[in-house]
Each structure stands twice: as structure tokens, then as C-alpha cells.
């Protein structure tokens, strides 16, 4: 039985993803397309929100993946710090832009949804605020990666930033909840979708969630492969110089 850690070897990782990536990519496209088409065209309009509610099929999975991507980066950073597997650090690096885009999709679709529902593009609601803050954390993380030349130093520093950032991101989340309650008591805009969600919505929503998860996986695998190749190329150039 092969150990899980064997996939931390770049070569093994590349060989495995060689055949795995097309499968995951196909599955991602199929599942997401199914979920979205199902959600957009084969669900009834909500009696209160009309057809605008259907943006939920993009909004919720994107928001979910925005958070999950950070958690994945956190785990990958820990693996790098503890076990020093390069693939892990590179996977964290590859996940960050995907997470950032997911956060942006979540924010934009939220604004588009909020405009007809609440009559405003933006509200300083704790949940919205938290997502904006999450976006700042993604930006900082990506900026730090791009500022450092040496890949190992970059991996170390960003991993520590990810750990510290996670703690502060959670703190910020609670601070945002506290802050809004504290200032605007009573004036609440509830964003909680699916408080009474019917299975007619739930089933396509879950399909979309799985689809977005697969999209994330596809992009991270592809990104990690690119990063591995980039490092390999750097190493080859270095070899040339040494020889």
C-alpha cells in the first residue's frame, strides 16, 4: 500500500495528475454544468424573490470554496512547515489565486443579488464585511509570494503568514459580527439563504457545490503542475550555471 506522502514527491505527483487531471476536469465541467442548468431552468421561481434567487447556485458554492480554499492553504502550509514537502507549498501557492477569484465571485454575485433584494449593492453586514476582509488576506498572501525570489524562503514566509493570518481572519470574523451588532442594533439584513429551502432547490445547489469543489481541485492541480514545472525549470537553469 503506497503511503499518502509518496504523492509529495513531485515526480509521483506529476505522473498521477497526468491521468487524474483530465478526469477531474471533465467531472468538474459536467457536474457544474448539470447543477447550473438544473438550478437555472428546472427549479420553480421563489414566491418572494422571483427568479433572482437562482443566483444562489453560483453565489453559495463560490463563497463556500472561498473559505475552503483558505483552509486548504492552511493545511498545505502546515504540511510544508512540518514535513517540508515542496508539492505542498506549491499547492498552497496555486490555491491562493483560485480562492481570491472565488471570493470575488462571491462578492460580485452577492452584490448583484443584493441590489434587487435589499435595494443596495453593498451593506456593511458582518458576513459581507468578513468576505471583504478575507479578500484582503488573499491579496496579502499572493503579494508576499510574488515579492520573494527564493522559492523555499517564499514557501516558509507565506506558510507562517497563512498560519498567523488564519488566526486573525477568524478574529476579524468575530470582530465584524460584534462591530455591526454593536453599532446598528435591529437594522439587520438577513442573508441566510435556505432557511426554509425546499429539496427542489437543495438538490441542484448541492450539485453545484460539488461542481465548484471539482473546479477548485482542477485549477489547483493544474496550478500546482505549472508551479512544479516552473521550479524544475529554475533548477535546470541552476544546473547549467553550476556545470
Amino acid at each position: 500500500m503506497a503511503s499518502f506522502w509518496e504523492y509529495a514527491n513531485p515526480l509521483k505527483f506529476m505522473r498521477t495528475t497526468d491521468w487524474l487531471l483530465p478526469i477531474v476536469a471533465t467531472a468538474a465541467v459536467l457536474v457544474t454544468a448539470t447543477g447550473l442548468i438544473w438550478g437555472f431552468f428546472f427549479t420553480p421561481d421563489d414566491f418572494r424573490q422571483g427568479s433572482t434567487v437562482k443566483i444562489v447556485f453560483i453565489h453559495v458554492p463560490a463563497a463556500m470554496m472561498a473559505i475552503n480554499a483558505w483552509v486548504m492553504m492552511l493545511v498545505a502550509s502546515l504540511v510544508w512547515l512540518i514535513r517540508r514537502h515542496h508539492v505542498s507549498a506549491l499547492a498552497a501557492k496555486a490555491a491562493a489565486p483560485v480562492g481570491l477569484v472565488m471570493t470575488l465571485i462571491g462578492l460580485v454575485t452577492g452584490a448583484v443579488w443584493g441590489q434587487p433584494m435589499w435595494g443596495t449593492w453593498w451593506a456593511w453586514d458582518p458576513r459581507l464585511t468578513s468576505f471583504l476582509i478575507l479578500m484582503l488576506f488573499y491579496l496579502g498572501y499572493i503579494a508576499l509570494w510574488s515579492a520573494i525570489d527564493d522559492p523555499d524562503t517564499g514557501a516558509d514566509l507565506t506558510a507562517v503568514l497563512c498560519l498567523v493570518g488564519s488566526v486573525f481572519a477568524v478574529l476579524s470574523r468575530y470582530a465584524a459580527i460584534f462591530w455591526n451588532q454593536g453599532l446598528h442594533q435591529g437594522a439587520s439584513l438577513s442573508v441566510a439563504p435556505g432557511t426554509r429551502m425546499d429539496w427542489a432547490y437543495k438538490a441542484p445547489l448541492y450539485t453545484c457545490m460539488v461542481g465548484f469543489g471539482l473546479i477548485f481541485l482542477t485549477l489547483v492541480l493544474a496550478g500546482t503542475r505549472t508551479e512544479i514545472r516552473a521550479r524544475r525549470m529554475k533548477a535546470l537553469v541552476a544546473r547549467e550555471r553550476m556545470a
Binding site: A8, N9, P10, L11, H85, H86, R231, R232, K234, A235, A238, R239, M242, A243
Partner: peptide, 17 residues
């Protein structure tokens, strides 16, 4: 002076070198 590590079959190992 460090010598180049063996390349093996052109594969890359954990350290990329």
C-alpha cells in the same frame, strides 16, 4: 565544490535538482 547530483533518468526528485 559541490558536484551536480545524479540526474537519473531525467526525472525529478523531491529537491528538484
Amino acid at each position: 565544490k559541490a558536484r551536480l547530483p545524479e540526474t537519473g533518468s531525467g526525472d525529478f526528485d523531491e529537491a528538484f535538482l
